[in-house]
Simulated assay, not measured.
Amino acid sequence: MSSPSKLVLSLTIATTLIAPALAYDFGRPATPDEIKLWDIDVRPDGKGLPEGRGTVANGKEVFAENCAACHGEAGVGGIKDRLVGGAGTLSSDKPVKTVGSYWPHATTLFDYIHRAMPYTSPGSLNVDDTYAVTAYILSLNGIIPADGKLDKASLPQVKMPNRDGFIPDPEFDPARLFREK
């Protein structure tokens, strides 16, 4: 068979296989409820926070059961990242980056715990337990009181020690990433 004949045969076979697939409508638009299951990010201003509440006291219990094995009994001394301390070290030769010294937004802590923790079972904590663990870690860092509680309204109001330590790059325009060149 000559090369032009092979090409014609290949195109005929490809068209025969692809054309039926193009004639069908695959899938369907996601429903609002389906989108909501995946729309779980939380912004610094608190947009996206779910309803719920948690206390430092409850957070201490949840932390002991789910977090202490990796982060240490009080957020220090575990095999994973230190969560407590480091205040005043960021401008030193040996900065200690923790929730209390480095993180700019308390809502980011909630979001990270809710999606990625505990390490062995990410996303397994319910919303109230996530608020509680967030409250406990913030309390260990002296950011909220030992009898503190958090919810959708109060969490965005928490002033983190390094909130003003991050300066946006005035040249960075995230929309530019999606514009056609």
Rank of each mutant, 00 (worst) to 15 (best):
H114C: 04
S2R: 10
D129E: 15
A57M: 09
E180L: 13
Q157Y: 01
E61W: 00
F26C: 00
A87D: 15
M160H: 10
R53E: 13
D129C: 07
D93I: 03
C70G: 06
P20Q: 07
G27F: 04
E65N: 14
G72I: 00
K36L: 10
P170S: 06
D93F: 08
S10W: 10
A146G: 11
A74K: 11
S3P: 10
K94S: 13
R82L: 04
A23I: 07
D169W: 11
L138W: 01
I167E: 12
W103L: 13
S5H: 05
S139I: 09
G48C: 11
P161K: 11
T16A: 15
S2Q: 05
L83V: 04
P4N: 05
H105S: 06
V158A: 10
K159N: 11
T89A: 05
V99I: 15
K94L: 12
P174L: 09
S10Q: 13
G54I: 02
E61L: 14
I18G: 02
P104K: 15
S121P: 00
A175C: 02
G86P: 04
D33A: 15
D151P: 06
V84G: 00
P168D: 14
V99S: 01
A69V: 03
A68H: 01
K80W: 02
P29L: 06
D25N: 15
R179I: 03
E51N: 14
G75N: 00
G100W: 08
N58A: 12
D25Q: 13
Y102N: 03
P95D: 04
S10T: 12
S10A: 15
P32G: 01
I18R: 08
I13R: 03
V133F: 00
H114V: 01
A68G: 01
